[in-house]
Design a protein around this nucleic acid. Structure first.
Length: 215
DNA sequence: AACGGAACCTGAAAGC
DNA sequence: TGCTTTCAGGTTCCGT
């Protein structure tokens, strides 16, 4: 029953644990999930959904999967699952390719923010990064992908890289516009607006994020 | 195929 | 104080 973990890797919001017998474990944290290390004999914490006991350098450790909202997923499989294989490039591991972004935008009339959050285009871009990147690029999140101007893909790519870098630096969860609707735009002072796209709140500045339109 | 909207869950915060 | 409503860092499903 005991197996040896051969590799742990991440792609976008998915984590993959590969065992020496080829079996795999996939984990997605959803909105509220987390993995927490604990003593093997520690009682389950609130909202604990699963646990894995491992031996590392001779010491037993328990890793607990906690997820109050239960949107996360934990999947055991013998091979890679479609949720994993369908993922686009990972921005950190593979970089953000301007041409790929540009092509994804060009072939879709969906709002640019929804395209950015499509995990097949880039893996791991969620509401925060998409919101921050479009603000940085001065692009209105409602703009149809196919209506973007030349140079927009590059600006959005740059915005994504910056937003990711900021998140990694972790300034105590401070964002330029995410969660700041009603506050002044840090760039031009206009009151930040909010609109729902694909069921997700999208904050943007009507003053400096220009809407691209077709025709 | 593509789009908007609801559904899936719980809990913290805001509103009354 | 306490009950109700709203909202949340994500994804999937369903009807049009």
């Amino acid at each position: 029953m005991a197996r040896t973990i051969e590799a742990v890797d991440r792609r976008g919001k998915w984590l993959r644990v590969t065992m020496d017998d080829g079996s795999r474990l996939f984990s997605h944290l959803g909105m509220t999930g987390s993995w927490v290390r604990a003593a093997v004999d520690a009682p389950p914490r609130k909202s604990e959904r699963a646990h894995i006991d491992v031996v590392r350098r001779g010491r037993a450790i328990s890793v607990r999967y906690v997820d109050s909202r239960r949107f996360g997923r934990l999947v055991a499989a013998q091979r890679d699952i479609p949720d994993w294989t369908a993922l686009g490039p990972d921005p950190l591991a593979d970089g953000v390719d301007v041409r790929r972004l540009s092509q994804a935008f060009a072939k879709s009339r969906r709002a640019v923010k929804e395209i950015l959050m499509d995990q097949r285009v880039l893996a791991g871009i969620g509401n925060i990064l998409a919101t921050e990147a479009l603000w940085a690029a001065r692009v209105d999140p409602r703009s149809p992908g196919a209506a973007l101007w030349p140079g927009d893909a590059r600006a959005v790519a740059t915005g994504l890289r910056r937003a990711i870098a900021r998140e990694l630096a972790d300034r105590d969860d401070t964002f330029f516009v995410y969660g700041q609707a009603g506050e002044p735009c840090p760039r031009c002072g206009t009151r930040l607006s909010s609109v729902v796209l694909g069921g997700r709140t999208s904050v943007y500045c009507s003053g400096c994020q220009v809407r691209r339109n077709t025709g």
